[in-house]
Design a protein around this nucleic acid. Structure first.
Length: 760
DNA sequence: GAGTTTGAAACT
DNA sequence: CAGTTTCAAACTC
């Protein structure tokens, strides 16, 4: 796809194209037909801890909800598109769909090899996105690219919206040269962040889910990157930016209705490629507000320095993939949403940012940590435009607020805190947006508003300095903002380094620390997307340890997350309305235990203790019929997990990190693993396919077995509402994106196909 | 709004 | 790794 038209490139370039990587990319590029945003809910971010060093993991900022508010999201993609003239950006129409894609070139990228993949979806239509890939190494290549086939930017712009652009820029090895760049990037980032959100590395993904209100930002997934990297390794530079706009955004499959914007930082695979420094730093993934992205996209020429800057600086070093979806109304509008450009950190006032300036700043900050869950790329989809914040505003806000935790760890961001996607999230977004306007104190958080009004809460840390997981903001990957009532806060852009280092430390300790605790998929959405993609049911990775709350209060993370307790839970007297810990039985004992379990809690911990495989099943009892229905799916979902390597591989897949994890983590990981970054990620990206793996396609095992005792599986909270009540409440993010897990090699492979599936 | 309760996170 | 302490959110009044 990429380069059909390309003019002859440097030999190197050609080589690149030939390279498996290139092929891989190509395959990837095509995005599966976007599933309509409808469900975008789940987005999962995975860090591939594997891939990236720990730091990398953190690299992804979580959300910056508060300050984030700054993130403006624009829907105006259109405008941008028009401007796209800039050489750098390329627009393409997707044929039928009018969607326009802009490609950002990685001019400067060290190696010629830069592949950019753009996925376009019809904003309006659910049509499959049209991926476009650009490969260009040097700037020259860029030009070439333009010629290549990339469509002219100038033409056609407006109508179409870019729904989804995927741009990865990586300059892995070459990065070296770039390394400096990386560092620079970081610096820039910090600066930029402060200054502007300007550049976006593209490491992050944004998704708008038109339908869903939520706007999610996801840091680039490492898993993907990994894949890419793997394939690309040969290729030094790989750049992809993934942008999604519009409702249809391919990735956004699951957009939940949530308006929330969240970003999940996945760990970037960068790590391998990059020096550790880079990782933590800005370089790695950054989240860029959609708006920003859009802006840049829209105004590529002007602002998008991307080519140069980005590629050279940020991009080079990094392989990032940004997925950005805007949910907002784009869907409806179709085009509007601008795609985000990867590199740019959009937020900066579009224009303000000189292209150069902008470039790369990676903003990690996720605009808001929406409650999102995992990332759905797709899910992103739609955020009601309404909710969308004007870019300008956002940007400004961002700048001012500098909440962006850009640097912040990548992974978890998912949003945790915020999380909950759900419905509440929407509100949050909106509010957020509104607040976003710079100054407003509101920034705080998007954390959800649940209807409670709790929404905008922010942290009120006194002793932790907002550098511990106690701090919701920190946990969410966002900088503290006005709304926060914290004391001695160090979770500020000005302390980016500290924040990042702290995050890294925490992640090193617990790779899943920033991972979303609960992954949720809403039933409907999931289905929409293809059930496959997202883990069907939400899950609580860790499982709670409630004793007095009986899992009936928000003290219980599971409850808060709107998910039922799972095997991994260690709660006592579980009465979780979403689903009691069901029985978990050892496989061998399954049935026998089941009997016990049915009783309710009986099972519980028994199994957990054991590392043995567990079987999880939900109690029909707990669930209402409807619920039960839901539940079952969830179960199914889990299966995939099961599918994952059985006990033997405690670690899920390859990721070494896993080993490091604490037992809990392991447990979680395991479960999570199931979701392996890729899978989940891919799924998210793809919307579906990957899920297959999870679902068990990959693994024949349909059985629910869970390898690790810890793994939790939460019965689908969805019950009834699909929303967990939790959502409303707002404490932490319940639905965090799935933590990045170490990528699973296997999965990856599996995933690949999936991804490929995405590709046309 | 202050105080208590709770369970996760952090520490030892 | 387990136990204890610390912390901040959730909850109660």
């Amino acid at each position: 796809m990429d380069t059909p038209d390309r003019p002859p490139r440097a030999a190197a370039t050609a080589a690149v194209e030939d390279s498996p990587v290139f092929n891989f990319i190509n395959s990837l590029s095509p995005i599966p037909p976007p599933k309509p945003s409808d469900s975008a809910h789940n987005v999962q971010l995975f860090k591939s801890s594997d891939l990236a060093p720990v730091s990398s993991i953190f690299a992804s900022p979580h959300v910056n909800p508060a300050k984030e508010s700054k993130l403006p999201i624009r829907e105006d993609s259109v405008q941008l598109s028009r401007e796209s003239h800039s050489p750098n950006s390329v627009r393409t129409r997707t044929g039928a769909t009018s969607s326009i894609i802009r490609m950002i070139r990685c001019k400067n990228i060290v190696s010629e090899n830069c592949s950019i993949t753009c996925y376009l979806n019809d904003s309006t239509s659910s049509k499959a996105s049209q991926p476009i890939q650009l490969c260009g190494g040097s700037a020259e290549s860029d030009t070439n690219q333009n010629t290549d086939g990339k469509k002219d930017p100038t033409t056609e712009q407006d109508r179409t919206d870019i729904e989804f652009v995927l741009l990865d820029q990586c300059g892995p090895e070459k990065m070296d040269s770039s390394q400096s760049g990386n560092n620079a990037c970081e610096n820039q980032l910090s600066e930029q962040h402060k200054d502007e959100l300007g550049s976006f590395d593209g490491g992050y993904m944004f998704a708008h889910q038109p339908h869903s209100d939520m706007l999610r930002l996801a840091p680039p997934f490492e898993s993907e990157t990994q894949l890419v990297n793997e394939t690309l390794q040969t290729d030094n530079v790989y750049c992809e930016t993934l942008l999604t706009d519009g409702p249809s955004g391919s990735y956004t499959q699951n957009s939940a209705p949530d308006p929330h914007l969240y970003w999940a930082g996945a760990v970037e695979g960068c790590a391998t490629d990059y020096t550790p420094q880079m990782l933590p730093g800005a370089c790695q993934s950054q989240l860029v507000p959609n708006d920003q992205i859009n802006n840049k996209l829209n105004e590529p020429s002007d602002y998008m320095p991307m080519d140069h800057n980005v590629s050279s600086q940020n991009l080079r070093g990094m392989r990032r993939r940004c997925l950005f979806n805007e949910k907002s109304g784009a869907a409806n509008e179709g085009a509007k949403n601008s795609s985000a450009r990867h590199s740019t950190n959009s937020t900066t006032p579009r224009r303000k940012i000189s292209s150069s300036d902008n470039n790369l700043k990676t903003l990690r900050t996720p605009p808001c940590a929406l409650p999102g869950i995992g990332l759905h790329l797709n899910a992103l989809a739609t955020v009601p435009k309404d909710k969308m914040v004007p870019h300008n505003d956002i940007q400004s806000s961002l700048n001012q607020a500098s909440n962006v935790p850009s640097a912040v760890g990548s992974s978890p961001p998912t949003d945790d805190p915020h999380t909950i996607n759900d419905d509440s999230s929407q509100t949050a977004v909106v509010a957020y947006v509104g607040e976003s306007s710079q100054g407003s104190p509101k920034k705080k958080r998007h954390k959800f508003d649940n209807g409670d009004g709790t929404s905008c809460k922010r942290c009120s840390c006194k002793k932790s300095k907002c550098l511990k997981l106690y701090c919701e903001c920190f946990h969410a990957g966002v900088f503290c903002s006005e709304p926060c009532s914290c004391q001695g806060c160090l979770n500020m852009p000005s302390n980016m380094e500290t924040v990042l280092s702290t995050r890294e430390q925490i992640e090193s300790r617990n790779p899943l620390a920033f991972a979303p605790k609960v992954i949720r998929t809403e039933p409907g959405q999931e289905l929409a997307d293809d059930s496959n993609k997202t883990p069907a049911s939400s899950r609580h990775k860790r499982g709670c340890n409630c004793k007095k709350s009986s899992c009936l209060k928000k003290y219980c993370e599971c409850y808060q997350g709107g998910v039922g307790c799972s095997v991994s839970c260690r709660c006592e007297g579980c009465k979780n309305a979403f689903g009691r810990r069901e029985g978990v039985a050892l496989l061998g004992i399954e049935e026998a235990k089941r009997g016990c379990e049915e009783k309710d809690g009986g099972v519980k911990e028994e199994t957990t203790d054991n590392d043995k495989q567990l079987v999880i099943y939900q109690d029909s009892i707990n669930l209402t019929p409807a619920e039960s229905v839901l539940a079952t799916p969830s179960v199914v979902d889990y299966r995939p997990l099961v599918a994952l390597p059985p006990l033997s591989s405690k670690k899920p897949r390859s990721s070494t990190k896993l080993g490091g994890y604490s037992s809990r983590l392991e447990g979680h990981l395991k479960s999570d693993i199931l979701l392996s970054p890729f899978e989940s990620y891919a799924e998210m990206m793809l919307g579906d396919g990957t899920s297959n793996v999870l679902k068990g396609e990959s693994s024949p095992q349909t059985s629910v077995k869970v390898v690790s005792p810890n793994k939790k599986r939460v019965s689908p909270p969805r019950i009834g509402t699909g929303l967990s009540p939790i959502c409303k409440s707002g404490r932490k993010l319940i639905l965090k994106s799935i933590p990045s897990f170490p990528s699973l090699g296997v999965d990856i492979t599996n995933e690949d196909p999936n991804t490929s599936s995405l590709a046309p």
